[in-house]
Amino acid sequence: MTDLIDLDDLPVRAIKDVPQERLCLRCRAPFWSEGFGERICRRCKGSSTWQTLVQSVRPPGRRR
């Protein structure tokens, strides 16, 4: 038996949403990005400035 991939199960991406090297919007250093939604490099995301900013704009969790 062969394992076939059902194309309907694959995620749909925009034509230009491809993995490629991009420039970080914060430090302008080139880094490998998995898609156009990833524009901040790993080094900048690990900085205390970035972490503080992310925590301050994250909406509070929903309570049930």
Rank of each mutant, 00 (worst) to 15 (best):
M1N: 12
M1P: 10
T2S: 10
D3R: 14
D3I: 14
I5T: 13
D6E: 12
L7R: 09
D8N: 14
D9C: 06
D9H: 05
L10V: 13
L10H: 08
L10Y: 06
V12Q: 01
V12R: 02
R13D: 01
A14H: 13
D17Y: 07
V18C: 00
V18Q: 12
V18F: 03
P19S: 15
P19A: 15
Q20I: 03
E21W: 12
R22T: 07
L23D: 08
C24Q: 02
C24S: 04
L25N: 15
C27H: 09
C27F: 11
R28I: 04
A29H: 13
A29S: 15
P30C: 04
P30H: 07
F31P: 03
F31L: 05
W32Y: 09
S33Q: 02
E34Q: 08
G35C: 03
G35R: 01
F36L: 09
G37F: 00
E38K: 07
R39K: 08
R39S: 05
R39F: 02
I40P: 02
I40H: 01
I40C: 08
C41G: 06
R42T: 09
R42P: 05
R43V: 07
R43G: 02
R43E: 12
R43L: 03
R43I: 07
C44K: 09
C44P: 06
K45L: 02
K45W: 00
G46V: 06
G46Q: 13
G46A: 13
G46N: 13
S47I: 04
S48P: 14
S48A: 15
S48D: 15
S48E: 15
S48Y: 10
S48F: 08
T49G: 09
Q51G: 03
Q51D: 06
Q51E: 11
Q51C: 08
Q51Y: 01
T52C: 12
T52E: 14
L53M: 13
L53D: 10
V54F: 11
Q55R: 14
S56L: 14
V57Q: 09
V57E: 12
R58Q: 14
P59Y: 14
R63V: 04
R63C: 03
R64T: 02
R64N: 07
